[in-house]
Write a protein that binds this DNA or RNA. Sequence first.
DNA 1: ACTGGGATTGCATTCGTATGCAATCGATAC
DNA 2: GTATCGATTGCATACGAATGCAATCCCAGT
Lengths: 335, 335
Amino acid sequence: MKRRSVTSHEVARLAGVSQSAVSRCFSPHASISAETREKVLAAARQLGYRPNTIARSLITRSSRTVAVVVSQLDNPFYALTLARASRAFQSEGYHLLLFLVSDDGDTTGVMSEILQSQAEGILMLAASLTTPFAQECVARSIPVVMINRTVDFTGVSQVSSDNYHGGYWAGSYLAGQGHRRMAFLNGLASSSTGAHRRQGFLDALAAQGLECWAEENGEYRFDKAREATRRLFVQPPYPDAVFAANDHMAVAVIETLRAELGLRVPEDVSVIGFDDTPIAAWPSYRLTTIRQPLEDMVAAAAELLLEQMREERLSPVQRILPVVPILRGSVQQRY
Amino acid sequence: MKRRSVTSHEVARLAGVSQSAVSRCFSPHASISAETREKVLAAARQLGYRPNTIARSLITRSSRTVAVVVSQLDNPFYALTLARASRAFQSEGYHLLLFLVSDDGDTTGVMSEILQSQAEGILMLAASLTTPFAQECVARSIPVVMINRTVDFTGVSQVSSDNYHGGYWAGSYLAGQGHRRMAFLNGLASSSTGAHRRQGFLDALAAQGLECWAEENGEYRFDKAREATRRLFVQPPYPDAVFAANDHMAVAVIETLRAELGLRVPEDVSVIGFDDTPIAAWPSYRLTTIRQPLEDMVAAAAELLLEQMREERLSPVQRILPVVPILRGSVQQRY
DNA sequence: ACTGGGATTGCATTCGTATGCAATCGATAC
DNA sequence: GTATCGATTGCATACGAATGCAATCCCAGT
């Protein structure tokens, strides 16, 4: 027996005023006398009335909702990002519609749902957007901000850290520390993030006259990264350093080297990660990594999206935030 | 320049049919001829029409939305739970409205927003509900399912694992392995989960004529757990075992013991966790823990909520799923 | 007492879609 | 050719709240 919810009409009748008066009581800037407000609020309390957001959205044509698309929630970096984003939008009075997608693809169904849902903005975390959908968003003037993923289309805003220079730093640092057999453990082939980190890394090595010793793909997943590590270390000569495209995989590398290969980090193999997740700081790993300015990225993305939703900013922007290397103990100099 | 979205009227005009016909094209069981459908779909495609979910919700009085309230997204267990839950509801055509709350409280504002949002169901992950709100949900017949948290009110459904027996197992196991100075590291004081684990643990010890050697609180947070560990180990005689209320804290204990106290796990101190998060299986920890049947819990919660939303089930239920001890290497027998 | 003007208030309409009902269409059966 | 029945279709209305506009109220100023 679904009971009909209390409507403003019922409150109005009980309070002896018009429905408009009730509505005005719940709008911030409406003109209403203290006396009427009292009566209405009393009636509302008595009936347990709450304005119906859906009806309100329909008439005001604003849902005050943003859709968040995220993959890889098992990666602590994105779990944290989501948490931050949630706070940012909640505090601005927006609701978050959450959509999880699998790493690789088929965002079609999801994007279609988002478009129907009347979300006013879309935040993409580590998830890509197909060009047709990006175009459709632009056509409907629904702002989109992508964090840490790129789309080959200029219509959407993008916030990311400086993946290229992060990778470059990793390459020059390892080279400078005397490593000669550096391996790269990439994430998804489809991720622009990984591609940029890789390119920076390779360029840095090339600048030193070095080449990448080996490359594998761990799909940003722990278990895949472990498998990839085994492939990287099938037979000597082993790599003397591994640069993993994120911390999650870097930790997998360390665990695998220690437990299965009997190799020490950093004595036998140096490891560098990317992200600076909380785990990187744990004493067991002391992972040297490249910090993405999580707070700033989320703040920038939220701010951008809010601006665009408020139509203060019309043109999409691409913001690349600087990355900072965090030197801990997972790299050791070679002689 | 927010452009008005395409409406069913416009599609109707272009297709030369009535608005009703358009509507019927997008409703599954409506009666519509193939010919008309063709025309309408063509027009819709041409205009980029998508039914407006908000208007649809208003008229059908069903939002097909469930609100998920979660705290502790930084705990991988809950990140995973959220991911699973998302899949479960997405596949049933429901949208998820995400609300993050801080561990301790002030769910008031959030609950109030949920009630206004016309969500058809509420899923609470590791977050508590105040009794007045529980009552209000019941009064509005909005089903609520709580995972891993309890409210002192019979109106809402609850799914949890058998925390008491999990704790009991930890107690008897440690006692049986010859430990004599067991410490308990609790989570939030306000969490029923922790309370049950604690009670089971204490009862098991009591059954062996033992008492808990020391107790601390780590609020389910990594850094708090580290601090708590230091307090637990200020001076000898040290505890010879620690039972932590979840894996997240158990790992913090291990890290702290190894890095700061120079103690080995399990040789000097045994550690037991709770949850069986992926990290527990990492070679560095090999954490003996108590597995919560994550999949089953989410499945049960989703199923329960769906049943109640479909009004197939009216009375709330309380479901306690069995827990299974996972023996790894973080406990060693004492003599 | 009367007027002016600002503050409230109510009326009526609007948002975009679903749906009961009646009208219409088409085809089959006689 | 006509009656009949089922399948389509359009009309009109409803969902619940916000808001432009006009009506009303109240009080101050003269």
